[in-house]
Structures are given as C-alpha cells and as structure tokens.
Amino acid sequence: MKQRPRIRTGLVLAAALLAAAVGGADARSKVRVVASITDLKALTEVIGGDLVDVDALARGTQNAHDVEIRPSLMLKLRHADLVVRNGLGLDFWLDQLLAGAHNAQIMPGAPGYVDASRGIDVIPTSGPIDRSRGDVHPEGDPHYTLDPANARVITANVVEGLKRVAPQHAAAFDQRRADFLARLDAAVTRWQKTLEPFRGAKVITYHETFNYFLRRFGLVLGGAVEDRPGIPPSPGHLSALIRTIREAQIRVIMAEPFADRRAVDLVARDSGVRALTLPSSVGGAKGVDTYLDLFEHNVGALAAALGGRRG
C-alpha cells in the first residue's frame, strides 16, 4: 500500500514529460537547424534568414576535429529539424552524437540530414593512407568551406535539406541563396584582386587547414608546423621547417586559433617570418561573425602580411 503514492507520482511525471515530448514539436514556428561547424551555421543562416534558428556544435575557435561528445550537444540535436554536417571525416564525432540524440528525423538518410560535402571538388589525400602519416583523411581534405567558391555547392545542399523539412518556404530559400551568391561573387572578385600580386607566394600553415583557401587564391603551401596532421611537431621537424622558410624566403605563417602557439612563435622567431593567427571558421576571431567576414578578415590580414617587409 505504501508504494501507491510513489507510483502515482511517477506516472504523473512520466505523463507530463510525454506531453512535453508530443506537444513541444508543434509549438515551433522556425526550422531548427544544427550545423556541425560554424561555417555551415553561417551559410544556413544566410539562406534561412528569420525562418530558421541555427546552432552549431563546434565553436569557431575550436579545432573541429576534436569536439567532445557532450550531452549538451546531443540535446541540441534532440530538438533539431535538420542537421547539416561537414562530412569527409572532419565531424566524425557527429555519428556518436546522433546516436545519443534520440531524434530519428535527422539520422543519416532521413529527411532532416544534410551532408554539405556532396558535390564538392575535394582535394584528395595523396600517398598511402595509414597512421604513420598522422591523422590523415581517407576521404580527402575536409576543410572545403575555406574556398568561398564551394559555398555554391554547400548552399545548394542546405537549400535542398531546408526544402525537405519546410517546403512551404522553398521560394524564400531560393531567393535568399541567389542574393547571397551574387554578393559572394562580387566579394570573391574583390578578394582575388587583393591577393593577385602575391600569386605563387609560399606560405606556412600550422595544420593543413587552408589548402582550399590557398588553391582558390593562387598561393602555395610551403610547409606545415605540425609534423604530420594531428601530431605535435618534433624539434627536428621544426629545424627543417625553419631552414625551408629561410631558403624559400617565405614571409607568413598562417596559424589557426587552436594552434600550438609555442611552436608557431618558435618558428617565427627563428626564421624571421610573421605569424598570423587567422580564423579557420566563422567565430574564430573577434568581428568574424559571417561567412563573408571570414574571408574579408583573412584576405586583408594575409595581403598586409605578404606585402609587408620580411621579418
């Protein structure tokens, strides 16, 4: 007999939670989108405008390879109508988050799942793929959002997904995308003009994050501070890199916000190059709040550094 109040309380609690589960779905007016990285969040926001509510799992200052499996991220996915992933192995952790999110709507293959990498001209991983070469990506370089030209394919994929979950707004999504691409085209022409004088110049990066950016603007990767992807640099590697920089008269190191500053500063000091901390994602630096901001910032900073005096 003593058990009854406890059972009743439990049933009431369960009923309330179930009501919240069923009723909560209908109370939403905006499409809730979760993007794995901030670049995809920014692009989805441009297309969706006030019709969408977008959140990102990785922070802009964070290395998107190293996102921790946190329940708070599962909660974001639990509430989502659409998930937009980077793919190509960058956000491999998303699979585990999806499995813990308890949201069938956004599982791979479901209407609310978008892999933004579909259709991207991927820079392939050269040479043998094994871990003696570090944490290489078997599916190719996943940092494709750093080529602004890829925004055309990414946004096409995002629009496709948005239309699946909110077809009533299809025309608005198309219009916003067209407007954005027009602005982007003009901006890219301007950025290419800014960096045109430095076409063929070699730069150093920390992780090999900026390959798409370099390809787009005609710059050349002269080496990376990381020994191999994901492997902290050894003293021998840093010495060799310093020699390379001196011999090739390289002017700039492009370091991501999550780069090991001690290694970057050491190379910069001993080789006389300028070390730039450049955001590799939207939100990676103060004032870099949109996808266009990301390139305005990086192109401007890089042009100033390449145009300045060495050392």
Binding site: G119, I120, N150, V153, A156, R177, L184, D185
Partner: peptide, 13 residues
C-alpha cells in the same frame, strides 16, 4: 543534391 564541381562564374545550379 548538387554533384557538379563548382566554379564561381557558373550560373546557379
């Protein structure tokens, strides 16, 4: 979804 490699000069797929 789109499958063609993008170029900036190309019209909207």
């Amino acid at each position: 979804p789109a499958t063609a490699a993008p170029t900036l000069a190309a019209p909207t797929p």
